[in-house]
Simulated assay, not measured.
Amino acid sequence: MAARKGKAASPSTAATLALVAAGIDFVPHVYEHRAGSTDFGAEAARELGVEQGRVFKTLLVETDAGLGVGVVSVADQLDLKALAAELGAKKASMADPAVAERKTGYVVGGISPVGQKTRLATVVDESALGYETVFVSGGRRGFDLEIAPADLVRAVGGTTGVIRRG
């Protein structure tokens, strides 16, 4: 990755501001989000011309220990039981979309793991570590950030674990 800090040509979002403030390199990628599209991750992979395994979605869950975040490839499904265990909880269920939007400050389909309004315990699937860079939402639909996986984990103050079902 010819890493660089976000430039003025890319949107300024809470995610980009957080990365710049932390001194973490990223590459912004803007693409045209099609109205009516609801498979946001697959759309991002297709529009950016990258394999789905490198594009990661941000999912909020409710656990008996509180809210948490799982970051998993769009090629995979989130394993709720595995994420609950990583978060120190007994069980997890998907958070209500309205709760996800309120807690993160982002809209569904544009929820970034970085720069969330409320910092939540975050687990990035370890499959991300197999890539030099991965793509995550930049904080709005049609905008992704390319970032080194270790930098992503550092930016969210998270951990890695196996939280996917292939």
Rank of each mutant, 00 (worst) to 15 (best):
Val123His: 08
Val134Asn: 12
Ala18Ile: 07
Leu67Phe: 15
Asp76Tyr: 14
Ser10Phe: 14
Phe143Thr: 05
Pro28Gly: 11
Leu67Pro: 08
Ser127Trp: 02
Phe40Lys: 02
Glu43Met: 05
Leu83Ser: 11
Ala100Pro: 06
Ala95Phe: 07
Ala100His: 09
Glu126Leu: 12
Gly6His: 12
Gly130Val: 00
Val156Gly: 03
Leu19His: 14
Arg119Pro: 15
Tyr31Trp: 14
Gly142Tyr: 10
Val71Gln: 01
Ala121Gly: 06
Arg46Asp: 12
Ala95Ser: 10
Leu60Ile: 02
Val153Gly: 06
Val69Tyr: 03
Ile163Phe: 06
Ser127Ala: 11
Val30Gly: 04
Gln77Tyr: 09
Asp64Ser: 07
Glu146Gln: 15
Thr160Ile: 13
Lys7Cys: 12
Tyr131Ile: 05
Asp64Lys: 09
Val136Met: 03
Gly109Thr: 02
Thr63Asp: 02
Thr159Glu: 14
Leu17Cys: 08
Thr63Gly: 04
Glu101Asp: 04
Thr16Ala: 06
Val107Ala: 13
Ile24Ser: 01
Leu129Phe: 09
Val27Tyr: 01
Asp76Lys: 15
Leu19Cys: 12
Asp25Leu: 07
Ala2Tyr: 06
Lys103His: 12
Gly110Cys: 01
Met1Glu: 12
Ala148Tyr: 00
Gly138Arg: 12
Gln116Thr: 11
Gly49Thr: 03
Thr133Ile: 05
Leu120Tyr: 06
Ala45Val: 11
Ala92Glu: 01
Lys5His: 13
Arg4Cys: 11
Pro28Tyr: 09
Val153Ala: 11
Pro28Cys: 07
Leu48Pro: 00
Glu62Ser: 12
Ala89Leu: 05
Gly161Asp: 11
Ala3Tyr: 09
Asp125Gln: 03
Arg164Trp: 10
Arg154Gly: 03
Leu59Gly: 03
Glu47Pro: 02
Pro28Ala: 14
Glu126Asp: 14
Gly6Gln: 11
Val69Cys: 06
Gly110Val: 01
